[in-house]
Design a binder for these strands. Structure first.
Lengths: 189, 189
DNA sequence: TGTTATTTTTGACTTATGTCAAAATCTACT
DNA sequence: AGTAGATTTTGACATAAGTCAAAAATAACA
């Protein structure tokens, strides 16, 4: 089990150089979990308190709009996952986060991170670079998005998450792209 | 002119406590400019090197898709502005940034910020909080966006930028929302 | 291996929004 | 104030994508 945290440390090291003290602090605080398929990590109305590192498995974030289940994003393994708006502003979430297959996650809470940021500047750097990366991805992905046809949207997603068809079903992918399942089915031919 | 930098310092102070040394460093590096309407701050193909604080005026970011001018976002005064993907990754931009009226901006370069981050932890905190705020805004704004009707999209924008009709014309707003100008014109009645 | 459940595809029809073009309104400058 | 330019609105029509429903394909499981 402890091995999982080491994977997370390795991940952080890709962003910022870690002192031994910072590493020890993270190892001491991090929670390791192996989660069954369908586990809910965060739900609507609750403030998302955790920032997760998904070591293995797949996670889907979704919300309900007019009673319909809309996929927000699908996260393959080795990604940082949370309900960004809720986590960053510590206000109630509109999202659900669920595992769509058996998954291993390492997590710390928002409060723990705030303390780590103050104590270890190199972790504050990690925090900054992490969000910057997410921001750059989003800024790029959605540029001109709504002027694309259903087919072009699908192609863009394939480029962003090549194995998306292996880790998510059509309905989830379609709602993530903002198109109907039927249209997506027709588009990919 | 120097007064402008003070406004920027005030802005930073809303995010992080500044030491005198950090404040002096920013004052020494910051560039103040008053820009005529239509000034291009960054263009397609070039790497966006500056992070701007828009003290007064209005800025529009846009790009070309199939030869059409698509507005990415409109920034009212007192906002931090840059071409996020290009600035954060220091790679060539797809965006243009232009003032749509006479504007005052204070700016530092990406390189300057990297040095400031390393020297002053409180500025690294500012950098982190700034990008976190942007991220939370985007995450919230676009949630379920493409399942909204033209009218609902417009209402969402009004909520995000109440004075948008004063600072941008219909065509710019429409392309920003991903709808045609005609549809927007009909929707807002 | 047969049966049931789930997911994906296909078909028929509807609709919101796009496109092109012209008219109307607003804005700015001499 | 009057003219030219830019912006917004209106009209007519085309079309991509939505919806509802059923069939086909795939996966799950006894």
């Amino acid at each position: 089990m402890e091995k999982l945290v080491i994977e997370f440390i390795k991940h952080i090291r890709q962003y910022s150089t870690l002192s031994n003290e910072a590493e020890n602090a993270i190892v001491a605080l991090a929670r390791n979990e192996t989660l069954a398929k369908g586990t809910i990590l965060s739900k609507e109305g609750k403030t998302c308190k955790h920032l997760y590192f998904l070591k293995s498995g797949t996670v889907r974030t979704y919300f309900y709009q007019d009673g319909k289940d809309i996929t927000h994003w699908i996260y393959p393994k080795n990604n940082m996952v949370t309900s960004w708006h809720s986590y960053l502003s510590q206000t109630p979430s509109k999202d659900y986060i669920e595992t769509t297959e058996i998954s291993e996650v390492i997590s710390l809470t928002y409060t723990q991170w705030q303390e780590l940021y103050t104590t270890f500047p190199e972790l504050e750097r990690f925090g900054r670079l992490l969000i910057e990366e997410q921001m750059a991805l989003i800024d790029d992905f959605y540029k001109g998005y709504y002027f694309l046809s259903a087919k072009e949207k699908y192609q863009l997603l394939i480029k962003a998450i090549p194995n998306i068809t292996q880790i998510a079903n059509l309905g989830h992918i379609a709602s993530m792209l903002g198109i109907s399942q039927e249209t997506l089915s027709r588009a990919r031919k």
